[in-house]
Every structure is written in structure tokens, then in C-alpha cells.
């Protein structure tokens, strides 16, 4: 028989090892809320379920999937999307006038609201003759399936999606709403664990990694921030959550990310001194920092 605190410690250690994400003490309720439905489905108590996932790899994968799901809404926090439309996009349209192409990465896409929110803005504001690609990546296969399907429940649709965009870009399918095919075509899916190397993704003009870093341990967080540097095209933008910062990083890494304020939103860009040099060696030189 396992006690509740032992069960929590076991899940916490397992999640850290498998995904790099941390669930500190005090997050017991969150772990329980996310695993209880799976335990009920498996027909056992929470404590017995924990014993089960330690032994059963398939059940473990399901549990990790449930624990790495990030709650999300449309145009989350609003201000970053306003800043994108008002400042970042016009700036990028100037900077990329030669290629007329934008690439955007929603690096922890969850169920896809972030990727599709950006898709709606590009659909409205990208001038004719331009092309774009939005890469949505996530660790969870369940979440990638959801982005692929582009279907959302009534309750999810209510979260932050302006009604004018609901009627413009979605249609009702049974009890759910489905995103317009032309928006779905703008989004490419990739399975990506943020703790694993970023290979074959190409580089981006905007990377969104919002409200995800908080779930990782400091070292992992810094490693991700380091590996994000060469993923950004010159003049590109990097967006993290409003409560997240690059300032607690080692000095070389903190200096590599330059902070800029757009209204209420802080954006990050690769510091000019670094941007002048070729990208690959920088990542290497910072790895040991």
C-alpha cells in the first residue's frame, strides 16, 4: 500500500525523468486532477494507479500524456497577439520583403489554439503574394491528433475567441466546432519533446514558447533557451509567458537574448552582437556557459 505522498513523489520523479517537467510539492491536486480520470477508467484507486504506471509502459505513456497537457485558450492573454498584429508583423513584412515568406513555430502547441490564433491573424493581415507556414509541435500524441482534427468543444470555443472570428473561421460539426480547412492547411504538425534536439525544423521568424518553461527545472530551462537561439531567423521574435524570464539564466545566455518592450508585452530577440556571427557556432559556444 502506497501513501498519497509517496504516490505523488513517485509520479513526480517519473515525470521529471521522462519529460523533464517538474511537479513540485503543492501541485498534488494538479497531478491528482489529471490522473484521476485515467485511474477511474482503469478501475482502480489513485494510489493503485500510480503503482500500475510504474510497471506498465502503455499506461505510463497515457499518464505522461495527461500530465504534460497545457491548459490553453484562444488569443491567450490577448496583448501578445495585439503586439504581433501591430508591431511584429509589420516589422517582419519589411524585413522579409525579398522572400515574402514567414515561418512561425508554436513550440508547445497543446490542442492548437495558439497555432490557429496566429493562423487567423495571418489570414487577415498577410498581404497577397506572401506565403506562411506555422509549425505546431508537442510532446503529446493526443494533442497532435487534436490539432490535426481542428475540432473544439463548446466550452473550449468560449475561451477567448472573439465571436466575429468564431463565425468567420469555424463551422459546427455535431456538438463541436471545426476550424476552416484553409487555416488547417497553414499548420504543419511535428512531434517534439522540448528536451530533445531540435532537428529538421528549419528556422523561424517568430517562436512562441509561452507558459511552458515554468514546468521545467532550471538547467533544462536554460538548455532550451540556449537551443532556441539558432532556431530564430535574423530579426525574428521569441515570445515566452508574461511570468517567465530569461534573466535568471547564466550571464552569457541572458546576454544572448535581448529584451524589447512592445506595449505591455516583453519580446525577446537574438542580441545583435551574436546575430552578426554565423548561428551554429554560437549555440555550441554557449552550450558550456
Amino acid at each position: 500500500m502506497v501513501s498519497a505522498s509517496e504516490a505523488f513523489a513517485a509520479v513526480s520523479a517519473l515525470t521529471r525523468r521522462e519529460t523533464g517537467m517538474i511537479y513540485d510539492e503543492g501541485k498534488e491536486y494538479l497531478v491528482e486532477a489529471r490522473l484521476q480520470p485515467l485511474a477511474t477508467k482503469a478501475g482502480c484507486s489513485f494510489a493503485d494507479y500510480v503503482t500500475k504506471i510504474l510497471a506498465d509502459p502503455i499506461e505510463r505513456a497515457k499518464a505522461m500524456d495527461a500530465l504534460t497537457i497545457n491548459e490553453t485558450s484562444w488569443f491567450r492573454d490577448n496583448a501578445p497577439y495585439q503586439a504581433f498584429t501591430d508591431v511584429m508583423l509589420p516589422d517582419l513584412l519589411q524585413a522579409r520583403a525579398a522572400t515574402r515568406r514567414l515561418r512561425i513555430w508554436s513550440a508547445a502547441s497543446s490542442s492548437g489554439q495558439e497555432a490557429y490564433s496566429i493562423a487567423m491573424l495571418l489570414d487577415q493581415h498577410l498581404p497577397p503574394g506572401w506565403t506562411s507556414e506555422i509549425v505546431a509541435s508537442d510532446y503529446s500524441p493526443t494533442m497532435l491528433d487534436r490539432v490535426r482534427a481542428g475540432r473544439y468543444s463548446q466550452v473550449e470555443m468560449n475561451r477567448g475567441l472573439p465571436a466575429t472570428l468564431l463565425v468567420k473561421y469555424f463551422s459546427r460539426v455535431g456538438s463541436e466546432w471545426e476550424v476552416a480547412p484553409h487555416l488547417r492547411d497553414m499548420v504543419t504538425l511535428r512531434s517534439q519533446n522540448l528536451t530533445a534536439p531540435f532537428t529538421g525544423l528549419g528556422t523561424f521568424d517568430l517562436i512562441l514558447l509561452r507558459n511552458v518553461l515554468i514546468y521545467f527545472e532550471k538547467d533544462v530551462r536554460h538548455d532550451i533557451l540556449r537551443r532556441m537561439l539558432p532556431m530564430l531567423n535574423p530579426g525574428g521574435y521569441f515570445l515566452i509567458g508574461s511570468s517567465e524570464t530569461t534573466l535568471d539564466s547564466p550571464p552569457a545566455l541572458a546576454a544572448a537574448w535581448q529584451r524589447e518592450q512592445i506595449g505591455r508585452v516583453q519580446v525577446h530577440r537574438v542580441a545583435p552582437a551574436l546575430a552578426d556571427r554565423p548561428t551554429a557556432p554560437i549555440a555550441a559556444s554557449l552550450t558550456g556557459a
Binding site: 468543444s153 463548446q154 466550452v155 455535431g174 456538438s175 463541436e176
Partner: peptide, 15 residues
């Protein structure tokens, strides 16, 4: 569809 009806009822109920 029964699955749709079920989804509607569960959504209203859980909310």
C-alpha cells in the same frame, strides 16, 4: 447522434 447528445449533456453537467 447519441455520442453528440452524450457530449452535450456531459458538457452542460460538468460545467
Amino acid at each position: 447522434e447519441l455520442t453528440d447528445l452524450q457530449a452535450v449533456v456531459e458538457e452542460v453537467w460538468s460545467t
